[in-house]
Design a protein around this nucleic acid. Structure first.
Length: 529
DNA sequence: ATAAGCACGC
DNA sequence: GACGTACGTGCTTATA
């Protein structure tokens, strides 16, 4: 049946309009049908026009066409175990539903097209977001191989350790309880054991047992460390070790994440089912999980390429701050260089503590931190934190000026934008409520940085994908983790792809300072990173 | 089903 | 006196 349309789908001259085209492309690929020609995705168009709103078709139809589409529940039943599939729906109803869907989508296209011009996002849409749809579809369908046997073994080991830890915690607490229940844990630690004089409370008046609260109590009682370790291990086991093997597709033998191109209001991608953008790396045990991500077979190797300090480089570029630009031009370790300036010492004389503080401030700058936030993170008095921030702005006046002008721009225009003109609207930027306004101000600083970084890696992905296709390489791009790309590379192509990846990542957006890309290969994701 | 609290990533 | 660092996804528990 569908073969009748294969010619039209493949025709370069025919533009394809749809709501979530990546899904349609994936389904058609299943029937060996290629989709060529320009794309117009209404979901993504609306994501650029109003990034913070919803982008599902029902919402769009109601908002822009004043029309309520026939709910899918009318055909396949309410959500739950009794819900059927589209295949079991009577043909006439299927036809009505499908035609309405297509009709609405085409009407939405008519509404959104002029809006792309009015918001100055047409180039972003046509040159970045639409070409990226095909790239993501290909990465998803490619998938990544994991070593399930290894994970299953690791699971048994974790199981044992968790059981032992449980017993030890019960012994230290003088009784059994559900350690995974923050409510019960809070009662044990703070009511029964009295481990704090003024326990911090959550908004529902429970005792907070969050990581930073427990971290401060770590010297009060040995149970605290045990609980932190217990939390960390059960998290690894239930979220990754036990779950990933279940998600291996039986047809391909690989794991296929799904990238969402229209959820993060800054322009980043997100990943789910499973989320492959939050695979552990910080702890020793966590790294075991990365080892389970492997090349497709022994003729391939994994290659990871990441942007080094891309967000700070973008701040340096966008703010034009000469001191920070100089640091990057000289290829200095940016956190040490920052420490040298704020503590007014030579870079060789920067201590580990000075560097650690400077690093926290640099991250704080990206997120719009306060003196209180910095003091909490560095565990130093608020006044000291305030001094560090003052000194920072004095020694990097361009950064201070950039932050002020960005907030002023937001107040004036009601939005901020990235290098590639991606917008984020900040409706609370002129709020009389200081808390609400503060939140908008932090978004005003963060969104252009995080969003420009997203613009840049998206451009790199498109260019790399197209170059690999032109050169008919067997190697494939398989993962994106915000500032990192992972490739499954054929051994014979390693020396071919390395310079391509490096060049196209560096040149995606030209900055006034050097861009650095770190690359390495290995027999698993941990070795390659 | 949904919210809360927590932990993983960048 | 309250507030206090951006963006996500997903697990378990507790409650409706």
């Amino acid at each position: 049946m569908v073969e009748q349309f294969a010619g039209a789908f493949a025709d370069e001259r025919i533009e394809k309009t749809g709501q979530n085209l990546k899904y349609d492309i994936a389904v058609l690929k299943w029937y060996d049908i290629q989709v060529n020609g320009p794309l117009f995705d209404t979901m993504i168009a609306h994501y650029l026009i109003e990034p913070d709103l919803r982008h599902n078709m029902d919402f769009l139809a109601r908002t822009y066409l004043q029309y309520n589409p026939v709910p899918i529940e009318d055909l396949i039943g309410k959500k739950g175990k009794n819900q059927s599939g589209m295949r079991s729906v009577e043909l006439g109803a299927q036809k009505e539903y499908a035609c309405e869907d297509a009709d609405i989508t085409l009407q939405l296209r008519g509404v959104f097209e002029p809006m792309l011009d009015h918001t100055d996002t047409r180039a972003l849409f046509e040159e970045i977001e639409m070409p990226l749809v095909r790239v993501l579809a290909a990465m998803e369908s490619e998938g990544v191989k994991i070593d399930s046997e290894n994970l299953n073994q690791f699971s048994e080991q974790l199981e044992k350790e968790i059981r032992e830890m449980e017993q030890e915690i019960y012994r230290l607490a003088g009784g059994t309880f559900n350690i995974a229940s923050p409510k019960q844990l809070g009662e044990i630690l703070f009511d029964k054991m009295q481990l704090s004089d003024n326990p911090k409370q959550t908004k529902t008046k429970q005792h907070s047992t969050s990581e930073d609260v427990l971290q401060k109590l770590i010297n009060k009682h040995p149970i605290i460390q045990q609980i932190l370790d217990y939390r960390s291990l059960t998290k690894l086991k239930s979220t990754y070790v036990d779950t990933l093997p279940l998600l291996v597709n039986p047809r391909t033998g690989r794991i296929h994440t799904s990238y969402n191109q229209a959820v993060a209001s800054t322009g980043r991608l997100s990943s789910n089912n499973p989320n492959l953008q939050n695979i552990p790396i910080r702890t020793e045990r966590g790294r075991e999980i990365r080892k389970a991500f492997v090349p497709r077979n022994d003729r391939f190797t994994l290659l990871s390429a990441d942007y080094s300090q891309i967000e700070l480089r973008l701040i340096a570029h966008m703010s034009g701050d000469e001191a920070m630009k100089e640091a990057f031009r000289h290829g200095l370790d940016i956190h040490s260089a920052t420490a040298a300036r704020i503590y007014n010492v030579e870079i060789e004389d920067v201590t580990r503590e000075m560097r650690r503080n400077a690093k926290t401030v640099n991250f704080g700058i990206i997120y719009g931190i306060s003196a209180f936030g910095l003091s909490e993170r560095l565990n130093i008095p608020r006044k000291e934190a305030g001094d560090i921030i003052r000194q920072y702005f004095e020694r990097f006046p361009g950064i201070k000026k950039y932050m002020d002008t960005t907030i002023a721009f937001a107040r004036e225009n009601g939005y901020v934008e990235t290098i590639k003109k991606r917008r984020r609207y900040l409706r609370d930027i002129n709020s009389g409520n200081a808390v609400v306004r503060g939140f908008a101000e932090r978004n005003a600083i963060n969104a252009p940085i995080q969003g420009s970084s997203a613009d840049m890696i998206k451009i790199a992905m498109i260019n790399i994908f197209e170059e690999f296709n032109r050169k008919k390489l067997r190697s494939k791009m398989i993962l994106q983790v915000h500032d990192e790309l992972v490739f499954d590379v054929h051994q014979e192509e390693v020396e071919t792809v390395k310079p391509i990846i490096e060049r196209l990542m560096k040149s995606a957006i030209e900055l006034s300072i050097p861009v650095e890309v770190e690359m390495s290969t290995g027999s698993n994701w941990l070795e390659a990173h």
